[in-house]
Structure formats: structure tokens, C-alpha cells
Design a protein around this nucleic acid. Sequence first.
DNA 1: TTCTTCATGTAATTAGTTACATGATTGA
DNA 2: TCAATCATGTAACTAATTACATGAAGAA
Lengths: 220, 220
Amino acid sequence: MSTSDRQALTTTSYAILGLLTLRPWTTYELAQQMDRSLRNFWPRAQSRIYEEPKRLATLGYASASSERVGRRPRTVYRITAKGRRALKTWLRAPGAGPIVEFESLLKLFYAEHATIDDVHVQLDAIRAWADRRAEENIAFARLYRESGGPFPDRLGPIVLAGKFMTDFTDMVHAWVAWAEDAVRDWDDTGHRPHAAQVLEDVAARQPPTTTRETASNEHT
Amino acid sequence: MSTSDRQALTTTSYAILGLLTLRPWTTYELAQQMDRSLRNFWPRAQSRIYEEPKRLATLGYASASSERVGRRPRTVYRITAKGRRALKTWLRAPGAGPIVEFESLLKLFYAEHATIDDVHVQLDAIRAWADRRAEENIAFARLYRESGGPFPDRLGPIVLAGKFMTDFTDMVHAWVAWAEDAVRDWDDTGHRPHAAQVLEDVAARQPPTTTRETASNEHT
DNA sequence: TTCTTCATGTAATTAGTTACATGATTGA
DNA sequence: TCAATCATGTAACTAATTACATGAAGAA
């Protein structure tokens, strides 16, 4: 039981297995590709990308062939039939929803202990992040529009993920603009017009009508 | 050097240190509060919340006082002056930008190997996720509008983070609606009108004018 | 020839998770 | 009085990270 647990693939395993369906890769190429395509919704360190395919190979989901560059060894990985089957099975089960980690926002969450300058440092950093990402998104879109990209027949799934990323970038950008306005009314009066407005707006919304047993939240 | 490294606080340490500025908490309360307030932008397992304050205490950033409930011991943590200073210092440095992990999207990214049903399983799961979150957001806003919440003077920072979360939820919701349309044109023709449209739109954008040394990306 | 960057990997360490264990409290 | 839930914690494990090491290739 604990032995079979140890053999269970992680999401990262499947992430790499998925890349291996496209073509064989050297570990370095995998790391590069991971960085290009999955970084934004499944970020992992380079060393992880070097380790995972080994495991895939020992478990039979991939095959490893050793090559040689001068005196240096290198490994090329290919997916096996077993690997393809495993991937297909994994694709059928619903995956986890989005998880966000956001250190700058955490700092803003404790802004009462910071100076107003500190707050602007965070907001500026976030804006810079959004700008950088926006640039990447545009460069990416132009590349694909002009050349079709390295895997033109994958356009559908690629843009599915790509639009998620641009939507997220846009959202962060808009949020930071709002936040800059909002912190402008942070004075000693305790009045927080922007915050109050948000509360009103969100509180006035109709909860989505989920179909689980006539959601009885109307005790109003 | 490696000894002093071991003493470095992590972001999670500061997350808890921040809560400790609000009032003293038992570990269980801390875990609860973490789950209520920080889960959405700094999610950590409950056991982590039980361990971290110990470290804060041994390093002098917090003090621990042992109480007793029947025969059971429990610990209440309080921030120290040193802890407050450390938090303030941490707040000054720019934090990391948002990191997203999204397993369902990863599965969609490999949708070529899935059936159309599999794809809809993912999209449905994502929509359900967004609906659940929307509900939480609304409940949260209503609570704060009506009662002011447990820390009414923190309204500013709280809504800063809260609006980020609702904006994100809204974005996911809108994206999934678009995605459902987009996968509708996934047939064998290879035509992907929705995807193509996104590429056009994003490619046509003007990159944000970052002020680092006259960004020379106009070789057009 | 030397410096830098690209390429390929391993080792050490840790932050974090899952799983377990059990006492206290509530209420049926 | 029994079961379920709340409360409090520890132990075992691992996925992941940072840091290091070094050969190959290209440029100056």
C-alpha cells in the first residue's frame, strides 16, 4: 500500500507526460518548454523537471535513451503506450481549481502596519508584474498569429490556456488601478468610500443558482 | 551562515505574525482565521499553522503561554515587540507577484488526448468552483456590510484583498463561459475562430510603455 | 585563449502535506 | 451514554526548492 502510493504520479508527472506526447525531448528541452508554456499555470523549478522524467521512466511511463555530447551524457525521453494510457485516464478526472499565492497582496493585507510609501511599493511591484506579463502575452500572440507556433494543430488548447493568462493579467492590471484609488482614501477619518462601495456592490449580487437542494439562503 | 539561514522567517511566518498583531490567538483559532481570511491568497495546511507559531516563539517573535482545557494543554500566542518590528521591516520590501496553479487548466491544455466529455468535465468543475467562490464572496460582503466584521477598522486592507478575490472569481467565471463557446468549434476542420480572434485581439495590443531605458521594441 | 552562456545533472535541505491520535464538548 | 463534532497536537513522508558543479559551444 505505501509502496503503491509511492508509485502514484503527481500532477507534475502528468504535466511532463503531456509534453512527451508532443515529441521526444532531452531534459533540458523539457525544462525550456515547461518554462515557455506551463510556467504560468503549473510553475516548477528546473531541477524538478530534471528529476521527474527519471521516475516516469522507472515506472514504465516513458523510455529513456542515453546520448552523448562530447564526453557528456544526456538523456532523451519518449512516452510509452502505458504513458499515453495513464495520461488519458488522468484527463478524465476533474482537476483541482485554481490556487493563488500572492505575497504582495498579503503585505497589503497588513498595510495598517506599513507606511503609505510601503503600500505604494507593493502596488508598483504588482503593476510592474502585470506590465511584464502583458508584454509576454502580446509577444506570444504575435508569434502564434504570424508563424502558427511550434505546434499549430494545438491552437485550441493553447489559446484556452493563453486567454486565461491574458484575462488574469488584465484583471490584475485593472485591480491595481482600482487599488491605487482606494488607498487614496486611507486617512484617519475611517471613511473608506471605495471599500464601502465594493461591499455594497458585492452584497447586492444574486448568489449563483446552484442546483443542490434548492439553496435555502433566503431567510430574509 | 547556514545557522542564520535556518532562522530566516518564511512568508508563512509573516502571515501568522500579521494575525498575531490583531490579538492573541490559540493555535486552533489561528488555523480557523487563516482559513477564513488568508486561504485565498496564501493557502496553507492546518498542520503548518500549528507548527509555525512554535518557531516564531523560539526565535523570539512571539511568546507562548500554556493553558489547560481539562487535561488537555493548549497554547496561546502573542506577538512580541521584536515580532512587530520584524513585520514592519518585511512590509517594506516588495513581495512576489501572484502565482497561479491550476490543475484543471493543465488538463485542458492537453485536451487533444481527451474526449469532448472529458473537456466538459473540466469546464463544469471550474464553473462549479467559481460559483462556490462567488457565494462565499457574497456572504462575506454581506457580513461585513451588516456587522462590520470582527475587525471593522481593517476595512481598507480587507477589501483590498477581498476585491482581488471577487475580481478573480468574476474573471474565471467569464473565462469559462468563453471557453465553453470556444470548445464548441473544436472539430476536425482545424478552424478555430474563437482562438484566432483572441490571437488577433491580443496581438493588436500596444505593449505597456515601461520606462526602462526607452524600451526599444519598435524595430517595426 | 579566455570568458560567457548554454547545457546537464546531482546533492542538500526544507517547507509543506497527509495521516493519525486523542481529549473535550454537545446533543440525541 | 453514545456518537458526532470540535479542539489540539505530533509523526511520517515527500514534493519541491536552492545551491552547487562542470562540460560544451560560441564569441571576443
